[in-house]
Design a protein around this nucleic acid. Structure first.
Lengths: 354, 354
DNA sequence: GAGTCAACCGAAAACGCTTTCGGTTATGTG
DNA sequence: CACATAACCGAAAGCGTTTTCGGTTGACTC
């Protein structure tokens, strides 16, 4: 391949100084339009590509952003992560920035890595996901002065940059959708309250019930890990309620799939006796039996948006405050959410009613 | 946070030269053991972290490897990519190397990016996945002199580094497993022959049949895209065979899920009239109705291995030839693969038999 | 016609490390 | 005791950019 082109070579060919070449290529305003075009043409011709390390050393900027992979990636968050990353990488690519994957194995390691980034500045900014309601990372990164954007809010995110889905609205809509179908016994399988979105979604359900004038017994609020197993067990508990629900708002598709399993094992048909709606919009849901009704959020687009926000902050000095955006999820109608059956909920033999 | 520690500061405190410090920290052999420990202690104490850009500029090494995301990432390869990446990042992290995500939007862009990497050397090596039987990338990267390892072989991979699952063996075992269960009508839904693993898997099926003395009509070999839809359509075609199969070896779990859908729509029960085995070992499969029998390969481990191979090549001058490894997949027994039913395959009314 | 001011560009100093080359010491050798 | 030989270490030259600080021009003002 021969030696790569250097600034110096361009300078020699054009009888200009290296500094002029550099400034011409970087579009400084004290270089005449004429020289700029000449320089650019020559750079193009020589296939010039700046040495990125020299550039970063000299400028003190790293042009790299990091994506922090969720630690416990044992779950079917697969789609989630990919699509987000693909979006981020795509957006960054346009500006010649790099996306670096950070995969801490433990929370402690995550902290160490953050501190190291703060010291070395080898990464210009971070994208974090899976935010908790009470997420120490927000304060830590702010304190360390590391620019970041989060996918999801937190109690600490008032002044930082974030992109979030309106989870509460989504679950409000999910709940009222059930109401419109005629349901009166609407339960919720939520996730650990640690996760901010878990709270938001639960609140949406509560608000949906309230605005429809429906009351739900305490037992209708279930909580579980975001796994298939968790969903299954939660559903089993719900079925033991005095009056089992006829509709269930699930915090995620994965949980919903687990819940469907629990129903089947009791001989109950999802979408018949008990309706179910999930959340995430996994394509997979369409291939279940029966296909899972769910709510969808555009993830790749979210990735692009997150990248642009971060770029705005680290490059253009944008304020985190001006980089907050709430997007909407949309209902994907499939076959697990239908009108209630007349013979359900069943009257329990052991119920107190005469 | 104050200014980060520099080599210079350590040198001043210890009354040594910068070069000595550098060599001590990099474990050069012309530095006495004594000085080394002193220097290391001081570095530790001052929380020294080398400026990575300076280091890379001076040494000419980038300490970064790139992972090329499969272009058409619309599929449920989710798990796949993540786990692999998590493994790579984990292994690299131990050596202070970075993992950079490369997400070309088109094949052309992929080529451009490779060429750019070759010129700029801003990435020390690549991990590529989704290899094709006839994959231009192998020759291209070799020609460009960019070190790489592939997850999966190709017709061009004889002399390059790779990690692959023994796909043929896996499908051989899958097929003979069906035979042991008593099946005689065993079909295969394969993928585009472009993919090398698709050929390997088909060959495994063929070999499995042959070694069991079973013959399959031409119509038993189906081919499709690696999608839910593809699996469904392929299964529909199989059901129209003169003698429909009682067992189907599917190239992936996703395809198998699509196939199950096709069965259900015809009122056929997966695992009863028609048995099915998938491939990939997605957890998800356990939550289908009925749970999908499949074959599993350890992906995170694969990622770690790939990273170590690449490090061996770019750092220790290891030969690609010495970095080839074949791993085994293992059968995960669930509920879609059972002994055949006596009333299946059905005798077609329109069959030629009297 | 001296002075002012833009508009352009070059020289040179960073940036923080690695690495070559050579120079001091101690250590052994004839 | 001169001399070669290691064993250690320092000086200094890169690595390829960016960026500061001036220095030339030529046009324009009064």
């Amino acid at each position: 391949m021969g030696e790569p082109t250097r600034l110096k070579m361009i300078a020699e060919r054009l009888n200009l100084s290296e500094s002029t070449i550099s400034r011409a290529l970087n579009n400084y305003k004290d270089i005449s339009a004429e020289t700029k075009t000449v320089v650019r043409k020559m750079a193009e011709q020589l296939d010039y590509e700046p040495n990125i390390h020299a550039k970063r050393l000299a400028s003190g900027k790293s042009e790299t952003i990091g994506y922090v992979m969720p630690i416990q990636s044992n779950q079917v968050t697969g789609q989630f992560i990919n699509k987000l990353m693909a979006g981020i990488a795509k957006a960054l690519g346009k500006y010649g920035w790099d996306l670096c994957v950070i995969a801490p194995q433990t929370p402690d390691e995550e902290i160490r890595i953050f501190k190291k980034i703060a010291r070395t500045r080898n990464i210009s900014g971070l994208v974090i996901t899976r935010t908790l309601s009470d997420d120490h990372r927000f304060a830590l990164l702010k304190r360390l002065g590391v620019p970041f954007v989060s996918h999801g809010r937190s109690s600490d995110s008032k002044e930082s940059a974030w992109l979030d889905v309106d989870n509460e609205l989504a679950f409000f809509e999910m709940t009222t959708h059930f109401v419109k179908l005629g349901h009166k016994h609407i339960a919720h399988i939520g996730g650990p309250r640690d996760y901010n979105f878990a709270r938001q979604r639960k609140n949406g359900w509560v608000r949906g019930l309230k605005s429809s004038g429906i009351k739900a017994p305490l037992s209708y609020e279930e909580m579980t890990e975001l796994t298939f197993d968790g969903g299954k067990e939660a559903m089993q508990r719900l079925l033991e309620a005095e009056v089992p629900p006829s509709a269930v708002c699930c915090i995620s598709d994965v949980v919903a799939i687990g819940a469907m399993q629990a129903l089947r094992e009791k001989g109950i048909r999802p979408g018949q006796e008990v309706s179910i709606i999930g959340y995430d919009g996994l394509e997979l849901g369409a291939w279940l039996d029966p296909p899972l009704t769910t709510m969808h959020q555009p993830l790749k687009l979210a990735g692009e948006k997150l990248a642009k926000m971060l770029l705005n902050i680290v490059e253009s000095g944008g304020l985190p405050l001006n980089n907050q955006e709430l997007v909407r999820a949309s209902l994907v109608r499939r076959e697990t959410a239908n009108a209630p059956l007349s013979n359900w909920p069943p009257i329990r033999k052991d119920s107190g009613k005469p």
